[in-house]
Design a protein around this nucleic acid. Structure first.
Lengths: 353, 353
DNA sequence: CTGAAAGCGCTTACAG
DNA sequence: CTGAAAGCGCTTACAG
């Protein structure tokens, strides 16, 4: 019975092998695999055991060909932080290998780049798009996608498109929580370094900072707030002017890790110890946060999980649409976490013990 | 003729549509797509035009199902730099979406982790493995894979397994070239920060530095060499002791970017300007190099290309093996590039103009 | 140089 | 609750 060996040398276990092993039809095995309900419990169990015993694993190609469910998903990105991107990719890949969808990655530089990439996606027959920041916040991109009739999901968006799915954290709440933590440590003069002005989540983080200060009975002061642009250099510069004030802040909250790292460098250059002389905290928990020294206390976004969930939601959306049912966009909010590392301590003390 | 609409709502262009459009058989179209030679030039051209006109793009699932060529490729990694990983992933993804192979990503922590992951790969029916550093340098992992009979490729290996494929740069030559560049700038007292002692490429880079010095008639001095461990902190510490010497080096060559970034921070803390007082250069061109300020002059490895090529080679290897032909492992060497940024200049001058 | 037939491993749509 | 048939879009292995 050299059935499997006809074309190929190997001996892959197929759904037929499992079926024969149990004494049922391939159809029943298929049902078990896909978790359909109308299978007798006893049958299901026997099939499951056979699957285990034969070490069967479904052929994704066959499955997606047969079910016509082979979604081509594009991930388009433009100029994100590399470490952000890598976490995102990890999550996406994890999910895509499970879902058996085909992934296409495209980078688009500049505003014209986006149009070109969108054209390309169309001709590639893409079924859906994953959008990381800053694209996920672009109303222009959202509009274009909508006009193309292409489903999409925004990952880590601060301004989710109302008619598209999204996964994000609550930037306001996260900045609020981090500021509260700083206050709980005993800090009263807390500086803030804003991100790029055209980014909405930068604004949300700033507002979270203000709100926490206010709630604690502290007065937010403009002179304790510096303008950054999410870059190391901008964090360096902003921190420098903040730290050279007569009444130096005892803590600095930079609204991303690159700026926080720049702020640490600036403090060092001024002869200040971190965290002994000044506590410096970041936001995002990118690899930068744990690369520099001292390692940065920061707010962690579970990027990888968010990306994985985002892709899953997108796939469901595509399936729903295909079946002709109406689709109600889902906006998921994931939990953030405050990660304490060596760059923070009570004012005037050293956290590294 | 509602053929395509039978099961699905859409109207995907298939090989049959193209065939009908041209007036040939699907087989001929298939041949054109796969670049087979036995097709008349005229026919080929007409088919190519139809493909263009109909905007046809082959269905990967069908293709890999029919050709039995659907390879499951695993990428296993352990503790690499995130920015390295993201470049690698980009390259791998680019290639895998073109080749239509299924990608599985597994992280393995620690030496036991590797064994577990390998077990998992086996039960998953993986056809080949991509190995980034430091796994790509592990003789243990190579041996285990060999015993499992699983083809693999090492990406950015300094010590390629003789019987497995690999893609790398010439670390010795790259370090040699960077050191020569420093000498050409006018530096004579050039310090070096070594990487982790158990890493072979760290050693190669050190040897390249020594060789360039020697070739230029300079005497390599042990006291100009510091021991690092590839981390920011270790670069910081090593640079500190190097820069506090009486005869301070005018340039520091750190054998990766994280250490170079740490060295810059250390210089700043000592009140030294980079590059005016000391030139500091790195190696790898990870995102760290362009995140910090001043941005780092460094050696670029084309990670993404290397990964993409590596996967391609692996796929070829699998195909060759399947056809029963003998496989001769290929070791590809890619070109590196010296990237000049703001952290280097002639001694005593400022490069940022 | 070109094509008709059979098959890849799975699922959909029907029957029972 | 279970199964026989047909088909997903492509390629392999033969013929001519």
């Amino acid at each position: 019975m050299a059935r499997k060996v006809s074309r190929r040398g190997g001996n892959i276990v197929t759904i037929h092998d499992v079926a024969r092993h149990v004494g049922v039809s391939p159809m029943t095995v298929s049902r078990v695999i896909n978790g359909e309900k109308n299978v007798r419990e006893e049958t299901r169990k026997k099939v499951a055991e056979a699957i285990e015993a034969l070490n069967y694993s479904p052929n994704m190609a066959a499955r997606s060909l047969a079910s016509q469910d082979s979604s081509r998903i594009a991930l388009i990105y433009s100029n994100p932080s590399m470490s952000f991107l890598s976490e995102l990719l990890l999550g996406i890949l994890h999910q895509s290998s499970q879902s058996g969808c085909q992934l296409i990655i495209e980078s688009c530089e500049g505003p014209e780049g986006v149009a070109d990439v969108l054209d390309k996606l169309k001709s590639l027959g893409v079924d859906g798009v994953v959008l990381p920041p800053p694209l996920s916040d672009s109303t222009r991109v959202a509009k274009a996608l909508r006009e193309m009739g292409l489903p999409f999901v925004g990952v880590a968006t601060s301004r989710p498109s109302p008619d598209a799915a999204s996964v994000s954290i609550d930037d306001f709440k996260a900045a609020f929580a981090m500021t509260q933590r700083l206050i709980a440590l005993g800090h009263r003069r807390i500086g803030f370094i804003k991100g790029h002005p055209n980014s909405y989540y930068s604004q949300l983080r700033h507002e979270g900072y203000i709100a926490a200060l206010t709630k604690a009975g502290l007065t937010p002061e403009d002179k304790l707030v510096g303008q950054g642009y999410f870059t190391y250099r901008s964090g360096f510069d902003a921190a420098e002017s903040l730290l050279m004030r007569d009444e130096r802040p005892t803590a600095l909250f930079a609204s991303n890790d690159d700026m926080a790292a720049g702020a640490v460098a600036s403090a060092h250059r001024l002869g200040l110890d971190v965290p002994k002389d000044v506590t410096i905290v970041g936001f995002d928990d990118t690899s930068m946060a744990s690369s520099v020294w001292p390692e940065l206390t920061t707010v962690r976004q579970p990027i990888s999980d968010m990306a994985s969930l985002g892709l899953k939601m997108l796939l469901e959306q595509i399936r729903t649409r295909r079946s002709g049912q109406p689709y109600a966009p889902v906006h998921e909010i994931r939990d953030f976490a405050i990660i304490e590392r060596q760059s923070s301590s009570p004012p005037g003390e050293d956290a590294t013990d």
